[in-house]
Design a protein around this nucleic acid. Sequence first.
DNA 1: TGTCCGAGCATTCAG
DNA 2: TGCTCGGACA
Length: 693
Amino acid sequence: MSTTNLDGLNDAQREAVLYLDGPCLVLAGAGSGKTSVITRKIAYLINTCGYEAKGVVALTFTNKAAREMAERIKTLIDRKLMKGLIISTFHSLGVRFLREEAAHAGLKPQFSILDANDTYGIVQEMLATTDKGRIRMVQQKISLWKNDLVSPDMAERLAQTPDEVDAALVYRSYDATLKAYQSVDFDDLVRLPAQLMMQNAEVRERWQKRVKYLLVDEYQDTNVCQYEWVKQLTGFRNMFTAVGDDDQAIYAWRGATIENLAKLTKDYKSLKLIKLEQNYRSVETVLNAANQVISKNPNLFGKKLWSNLGRGEPIQVISMDNEEAEAESVGMRISASRFERNAQWKDYAVLYRGNHQARIIEQTFRQLRIPYTISGGQSFFDKAEVRDVLSYLRLIANEEDDPAFIRAVTTPRRGVGQATLTALGEHAVEKKCSLFDAVFEEGLEDKIANRQLEPMRVFAKFIQTIQWRASKGKADPVQAVQPAPADVLLDDILKYMNYEHYLYETQEERTAENRWLNVLELVDWLKRKAQEDGLNLMQLVQHIALITMLERSEEDEEPDAVKLTTIHASKGLEYPYVHMVGVEEGLLPHMGKDDEYGDANKDAEALDVRIQEERRLMYVGITRAQFHLTLTWCKKRRRAREDLIREPSRFIGEMGLDSGKQQLQDPYQGMSPKERLVKLKEMLQKKTGTTEA
DNA sequence: TGTCCGAGCATTCAG
DNA sequence: TGCTCGGACA
């Protein structure tokens, strides 16, 4: 295992792995084997070049990507040599960084991490409104500013519209509030490390010394902040490999900026550019269409994918009467195709632009008895029940975490309502302390009636007791409590919450049961984690933000089912047979309610930029297909109570298909569902008669 | 004042 | 489907 195996890599891939003379940008087209390049390069660094694992850092955007990368590396490197290797998301590394450097950021190491729900509440309070749109707009604006490394001061100067002026004002006090809560939001997990490294020489040197080689995946998705952090981390050494594809940049709306790719060539004069243009995924018909579409975009580097997987079948474009017919047709086609090709359900994917499009497809698939799985949905840690339990843990670790206090003290209900919390808040301001501490501050009796005060004090005492019992085995002489390991404490917390009872009392039995199961799963997982890594409760809580529910994937076996997913969520995945639905003007490219093409003159450029991103989205969708692609669009689509007349997406025209051949009508057009089924059965029977191997 | 129910309506997403 | 908003009711 002392040398790295480079077998099976093409010339460009090999060059990318071996290049170590300085900064390196790998432009990796769809399906060109970029993960192989990253993992092999890591193996090469450690196995052959004598890098210590702890000096190598690979950054991704999702936990899933990080996990997959780690899996692959296990097969390439001796376990013993892997110790200390960091493969993580930007945010996870940010957490680790901030825990270590907390003092420099003015935080205690047990700071809390607030998610979008918590910050929504904070913004809501500051705006003193219930206008959801406005709150979200401000929240988003602040997030984008943070991602762009724009300070509140700068934001105030930059703000143009009245909305922005508002947002800038909120931004300032929002940040102050987070500080007071000893909390950070998700954006801070990257922003604060970047800023800290820019401003603090000691911190900068420490981390630059530590990171000997850096690899960044999906570089086109980085924002200003991430760019800067990467730059800081690589420092004078400039030893890094960035892998990305400008044609697959589809996250501008959340702050990512493709300019980062161009900026790289400017900032690093010696940047080595390597293009991976051989595609190992798709047949030529698919690839040609993708190339044609994306060629309508201005391009930075000029790359063209090719493959030697053969010509492949023509792409099909099918027009439908409406979305019911579309869903049915897709279902029937998949059924028939699966039979004809002797394929499996999981070889098929249905891609769409917006989540709501999945509904009709789900419905239809259930009728047709087609098994499916649907991607996306709420993440485990966003579920209300999970957040409820975690709010207790957060509060135990960091009693300054006011949002956690509010959530915990009001869940389950214990007679503490809005009025009480307001009074408590005033008291906290007066005494300049957290809500939690305010509960014990003198004078509260004058503000809050005993009936509310008492349960609140009982609650706060309970939290303290757990804190005492959790802190490194110190028995508290006054409270006479015994220290206890995390699993015991977790049980005690759940018991105190009486959460199961609360669930069944407040919700439908079925949902209560589901939610309780989620809680049990969470607690199980936490206990196991504590056991395996020998953590006490305090340490465990601090790790929560870093966690990925790794072990959950025991049932990893993916079921044999058709995959229903948005195009966004499909990035990075591949399927033998792909159906894209709703390929219509207005949907793909997507147009909001108020922006019609008509008076686009004023902001023609902005519109163009948006169309370009939609075009890349189309490109991503097309390139998911390995062997066959079917596009459908509806002549009419029901919106509210009216039928809208629709037109095929401009992107269909841009694919350069020889029309006529591929412009199919729905063969089942005008038939009732029953008739369609009969027709399908006929077709299947005919096939059975003449099936070949 | 709070909450319950039916109607209407959808960008895209992870940490 | 699932969420939110508006109107009705205790």
